[in-house]
Design a protein around this nucleic acid. Structure first.
Lengths: 143, 143
DNA sequence: AGCGATTATATCGTGTGCGATCTATCTAGT
DNA sequence: ACTAGATAGATCGCACACGATATAATCGCT
């Protein structure tokens, strides 16, 4: 006996993640942002001037994914990339005025998505915590 | 005020999906399968001889993703692709003996993942249903 | 029967993700 | 001060995803 796709927790995650990105698309397209780019900006709005490594720990991505992504965002004028003077190995990512201005241009997005998801704030928080706990059991966060 | 990444339901989905695929990897690598390929096989084990369109509705993927994926699986000898005699527009996907044999070779996978997730069967089912319901509200299934 | 509209799949270009590896820089221990 | 090892990013190759578009087969309508 084998599970069918609708039976599988992993497939619900896989397909719901795609659905979530599809739901974001009409909101992010007018801003010229992809979904991962929006996540990077969210991390930078919360704390500007992070290194590639710090961003990677926040987003759970490695430099092989982040470097090209950040270069595209630099090309769009959203961020700057500069070597840390104190430690030339590290690259500091900072918001440009355009990148910071995007925060207000995207201010309506979270409410739109919550509405689209048909969840109350409390329901969304509870589900988020359950899913984040599952993620931590599957792949613990790096220190 | 802007949400931080850990506050966002969408990010929990995004990162948990990556974590899930990472958890599958050590189990699927020895079988020579990627995670989407495993999902395709799961759909075919449940019902062999589906068209590209039917598989797409099950997996919620379009032909632009499925066609190259299925060609790779054909190249690996897991499936065959053939035009439907009755309607030459449709392509029938059928398991080869190797593709069918993979079902028993992968039989241990679901239990391994459940254990890795640290969930009981009931907990996994409940979470799966909650996430699938969210997905349906975000992007309803095609007819 | 003929033909425009519809349907099923394929193709192309771009943007992620990630394993493997490379390079430059820094740190520690002698 | 010097060098082995560690660390931070970058690079490369491959496999998804998906929007836009192309192609071929079928359907519907007259």
């Amino acid at each position: 006996m084998t599970l069918t796709l609708p039976d599988m927790l992993c497939f619900s995650l896989y397909s719901a993640n795609h659905a979530m990105q599809a739901a974001y698309k009409p909101l992010l397209d007018p801003l010229g942002l992809t979904y991962p780019q929006y996540l990077v900006l969210t991390a930078l709005w919360q704390q500007d001037g992070q290194t590639v490594g710090t961003l990677g720990r926040a987003l759970r991505l490695e430099s092989n994914t982040l470097t090209p992504l950040l270069k595209r965002m630099e090309g769009q004028g959203l961020i700057t990339r500069s070597r840390d003077k104190a430690d030339e190995r590290q690259v500091l990512i900072a918001l440009t005025p355009e990148g910071r201005a995007m925060q207000s241009r995207a201010a309506h997005v979270p409410a739109c998505l919550l509405d689209r998801a048909g969840l109350t704030v409390d329901q969304a928080s509870a589900l988020r915590d359950t899913i984040a706990a599952l993620r931590e059991r599957l792949v613990p966060a790096r220190p």
